[in-house]
Nucleic acid binder design. Structure first.
Length: 482
RNA sequence: GGCCUCAUCGUCUAAUGGUUAGGACAUCAGGUUUUCAUCCUGAAAAUAGGGGUUCGAUUCCCCUUGGGGCUACCA
């Protein structure tokens, strides 16, 4: 296996998405590893938009990719390369391949090709181009071109030759060239296929290390052949195992959220997402699990990349995201939760002060797995009327005392001078002590009275946020229910 | 089908010839003088199977099984 030790040349990596949809988690991790490796070696991380398939092009997708990269703070160097603007370059090298006898014109129609494959399938042969256009004479080619026949360019795969390369994660890989198809290089619309474009661009961009998904592993021998045909030195290959869904298949829309934007919208922090996906296929070998981007740059080790695919586990992401959320300052977390609150409560939010909203958010901070959770747990703070079942009020251990304790608690509350969490706690524990009550029988009904919920923050916290008037109003309403 | 490839708790993983196979998430139990959450403690939980090599295999080799990827004028 190829081990990357120190690099004497400048490291240049790239991310090469195709604008056919949203940037997804797998693509982000590939980008991250490329970024980390480049940056830890003081190199460049480049971006290339692979838009050679006009039929799958999605308007706006490129912009989304930029937006998501910016969100996770993965900065790329230089201007992005856009493949659709480089057709002459691909055509120039394609000609070079033809001249060198490494590529040939193929005039087969799509119908012919389907028919060919059907026959191969019937005979249980591997579906592959049978090379029928391989030996068309130059004169014949010239005359067909003159009559404007539609054509593609195919790789002239050498026969019975071993193609081998050394992958950083998978080690030595050998393939017999007989198993390599005569891949189409230039499509009939004049656009290159991935295989042609990728080697030309990587060469011209001076990419030194290619880290890409393992789905490219089988086509790498084709790329090696092309590098040899053009007389170029091939970069270092480093194929990354796929990120898997719960079904152990490549993560896809069917397994749940895969687009980075979905995670952003749900309130995952970019730092947490980056932290988590960095761990999907790599770890430093220590017990550290929380990493900033800078720490990842320092500690990432291309030689410690795993071979097998990791299942994306939302529970673990939630845990890490929760840890990041808990570290946020009160001001920051409030800012970040505000859009979700506005979306849920709309204009009603106008009735509450900034301080009030901030203290509500602060109360929920340690409970949040993701920012969007803020909406479901804060209803009790943004309503005038609590709607709950009176059966919730009595404490399970002393169910008969609810009304009585609430009544006396009410009296005590009315006398509280320092209406703060601490003040309330002091007064009420005092009250509990003097009346020989247990905490549960006094605090459970009070907490339910204030929250209307089975689960909520504690009564002191809620009352402090709500204020004296609203708190007493709720206690009175609870007493009326009993 | 063919080619490539992978295999440690449910999940992410540590341990590359000698460990009671470690950690984290999730789960369960207990504690933190009310619930939830946080925090703390504890429990249960894995080397796919079979052959070798070796004094000794999670670790090296082979086979089997199982999984994944690719097999387009898509990337």
């Amino acid at each position: 296996m190829k081990r990357i030790t120190h690099t004497t040349i400048e490291v240049r990596t790239r991310m090469a998405p195709s604008p056919t949809g949203m940037l997804h988690i797998g693509g982000l991790r590939t980008a991250l590893y490329n970024y980390l490796f480049a940056k830890q070696n003081g190199g460049d991380f480049l971006l290339r938009i692979e838009d050679t398939d006009r039929t799958r092009f999605v308007p706006g997708a490129t912009e989304k990719i930029y937006e998501m990269l910016a969100w996770v703070k993965l900065k790329f160097d230089d201007e992005p390369i856009v493949q659709s603007k480089r057709l002459e370059i691909y055509q120039k090298y394609a000609q070079q391949l033809i001249d060198g006898g490494h590529a040939y014109y193929c005039f087969c129609t799509p119908e012919e090709l389907t028919k060919m494959r059907e026959e191969q399938e019937k005979k249980k042969l591997p579906p592959r181009y049978d090379g029928r256009c391989r030996n068309i004479t130059q004169n014949e080619v010239a005359s067909r071109l003159k009559s404007n026949k539609s054509y593609v360019l195919r790789l002239k795969t050498p026969k019975n030759q071993t193609v081998e390369f050394d992958d950083v994660v998978y080690g030595k890989i050998k393939v017999n060239s007989n198993d390599i198809d005569d891949q189409v290089l230039l499509k009939s619309d004049g656009f290159p296929t991935y295989h042609l474009a990728v080697i030309i661009d990587d060469h011209e961009m001076k990419i030194t290390h290619i880290m890409r998904g393992e789905e490219w592993l089988p086509s790498t021998p084709k790329h090696i052949l092309l590098y040899e045909a053009l007389g170029w030195q091939s970069p270092v290959y480093c194929h990354l195992p796929n990120i898997l869904g719960a079904n152990k298949k490549k993560l896809s829309k069917r397994t749940g959220d895969v687009s980075v934007e979905d995670f952003k919208n749900k309130g995952y922090l970019p730092e947490a997402l980056i932290n988590y996906i960095a761990l999907l296929g790599w770890n430093p070998g220590t017990e550290q699990e929380i990493f900033s981007l800078d720490q990842l740059i320092k500690q990432f080790d291309i030689n410690k990349l795993h071979k097998s695919g990791a299942i994306f586990d939302i529970k673990k992401l939630n845990d890490i995201n929760g840890q990041y959320i808990r570290k946020l300052s009160k001001q920051k977390i409030t800012e970040m939760c505000l859009p979700y609150l506005v979306e849920t409560y709309g204009d009603a939010l106008q009735n509450y002060s900034d301080e009030y909203i901030a203290s509500v958010v602060a109360l929920e901070q340690e409970r949040l797995k993701k920012l969007s959770d803020i909406t479901s747990s804060t209803k009790l703070f943004f309503t005038n009327e609590l709607d709950y079942d009176a059966k919730l009020l009595p404490w399970k251990k002393t169910p008969t005392n609810a009304k009585e304790t609430l009544l006396s608690a009410q009296t005590v509350l009315m006398s509280v001078k320092k209406w703060t969490k601490e003040g309330l706690e002091e007064t009420l524990t005092d009250f509990i002590f003097h009346n020989k009550l247990t905490h549960g029988e006094a605090l459970w009904p009070l907490r339910v009275a204030l929250s209307g919920q089975e689960n909520s923050p504690g009564p002191f916290e809620i009352a402090a946020v709500l204020g004296k008037e609203e708190s007493l109003k709720r206690v009175r309403a609870a007493i009326d229910k009993l």
